[in-house]
C-alpha cells in the first residue's frame, strides 16, 4: 500500500506544480491578472500537497494540519479573489 500511496501523492504534487508553471507561463505571455491569481492558487495547493506528503508518508508522527490548511486557504483566497474581480467584468 505504501509505495502506491507515495505514487498517488507524488502525482498530486506534480499536477499542482504543472498547473502553477503553466499558469505563470501564460500570465507572462498574456499579462491577464486572472492567470496570476490562478497560478498563486496552485502555489498554495502545491505547498499543501507537499506538506501532506511529509505529514502522511515521511513524518507520520508529526501534525502539519495547520500549515497545510493555511496553504490551501491562502491559495484558494487568491483564486476566489481573481474570479470575483477579474473573471466577471
Amino acid at each position: 500500500m505504501e509505495p502506491f500511496k507515495v505514487l498517488l501523492f507524488s502525482l498530486a504534487i506534480a499536477t499542482c506544480l504543472a498547473c502553477t508553471l503553466l499558469l505563470f507561463r501564460e500570465y507572462r505571455r498574456r499579462r491577464l491578472r486572472l492567470l496570476l491569481w490562478s497560478a498563486l492558487c496552485f502555489v498554495g495547493l502545491t505547498v499543501n500537497n507537499v506538506l501532506l506528503f511529509l505529514d502522511v508518508v515521511v513524518l507520520p508522527d508529526g501534525d502539519l494540519r495547520l500549515p497545510r490548511l493555511v496553504a490551501s486557504l491562502g491559495g484558494m483566497l487568491f483564486l476566489l479573489y481573481g474570479f470575483v474581480w477579474e473573471a466577471e467584468s
Binding site: L8, F9, L11, A12, A14, T15, C16, A18, C19, L22, N49
Partner: peptide, 12 residues
C-alpha cells in the same frame, strides 16, 4: 483528493 487531482491532470 487524489481523485480530484487526477481529474485535473487528465483534463490537462
Amino acid at each position: 483528493r487524489v481523485l480530484g487531482f487526477l481529474l485535473i491532470l487528465s483534463a490537462i
